[in-house]
Structure formats: structure tokens, C-alpha cells
Amino acid sequence: MPVEYWLIFILIVMIIASIAALEMEDVLSSIVAIGVVGLGVSLSFLFLQAPDLAIVQFLFEIFALIILVKAFMGKEYHKEEPSRINKILAGITVITLAAIFIFSVSVFELLPPFGEPLMTTSQYYLDKGAQDTGAANLVSSIILDYRAYDTLGEITVLFTAILGAFTILRIKTKSKKDKTEFSHAAK
């Protein structure tokens, strides 16, 4: 079976899983469905000959699952039924997105067909990568040598995001319950 058919199959499974994740009521089920989508991405990276990416995506998936389950489990709240205006707005959104899809078909026809990339810059990396950097893995030769400043910027962004997450979690907030208790005590 050619790669294209495998990819079509995986992509259809991923689309169904993502719709299920968005529409299911239970939090744990939707997180697990997102896990299916992420593992589908990892599997398609394997089919597209990108083993480094498949491993990184797999690890990302596990960490994201742990973070989401730890953060969102057991946090129940009262859900209101969506009003009529919300349903109409959702319908309008679906129609708009379908229109965007139909118009974008002609855009995708302009792109080079699947399986025949442009390879203008990358051909240089493939030809000279081993001579210039001495790395056998050309992906890591690009990350750590040709585009090392990009990687430095990436590390900065990652550090800032993690620092932001820790800073947000350290701030102490007064919840509604505390406030009501406080007002009772004041009376």
C-alpha cells in the first residue's frame, strides 16, 4: 500500500477523533480523544520519514496528557445549556468555515503536488551538510549548526513560557467562597 493511502486513513481517524474530543461532555474522554489525534500525528510522521519528529511528538503527547489530566480532573462546574443564539452562531461559523474550505481548494492546487517538494535551499543542506558540520543526522545539523540562532530563540521562548506558567501558579487568588466567608466575618 502506498504511503498516501495510509496517510488518508490516519487523517480521517484524526478528524473524527478531534470532532469527538470537541463534542464529548466528559472531560477525561475528550482528553483521551486528543491523545488519539496526537498519536495519529506521530504515526504520520513515521510514514513521512521523520523519525526524530515522531519521537518528540510521542513525548509531547505523554506530557500533554499528564498536564491536562492533572489540571482538569475533578473540577466540575455547573454547565448552562447553550442558548438559541449560540446555536445559530455555531451554524453560521460552520457555514463560513465550509466556504473557506471550498475557496481554499484552488489555493492548494497551486502548491507543488504531494511527493514532489521544491527543495531549493534544502538541496544544499543535503549535499553539503556532512562536509560543513560533520553531523550524520541532517536534521540536527540544521537545528544546531545552520540555524542555531533559531534554536536559541526557541529556548528563550520555551523558558519564558515555563517561567510565565510558574509565575501565574504562584499568585494567590481569593476565590468567590473565600470572599463570601470574609464578608460574613465582617458582619
Binding site: 513521512l48 520519514q49 521523520a50 526524530d52 519528529l53 518528540v56 517538494p117 527543495m119 535551499t121 534544502s122 543542506y125 543535503l126 551538510g129 541532517l138 536534521v139 540536527s140 540544521i142 537545528i143 540555524r147 533559531d150 534554536t151 526557541e154
Partner: peptide
């Protein structure tokens, strides 16, 4: 295959 998009997607 083309290694450049792979490197960028990795980041």
C-alpha cells in the same frame, strides 16, 4: 526527504 521543515517543526 527535505530536512529543513523537519528541523523547524521540531522546534
Amino acid at each position: 526527504v527535505d530536512p529543513l521543515p523537519q528541523a523547524l517543526v521540531l522546534t
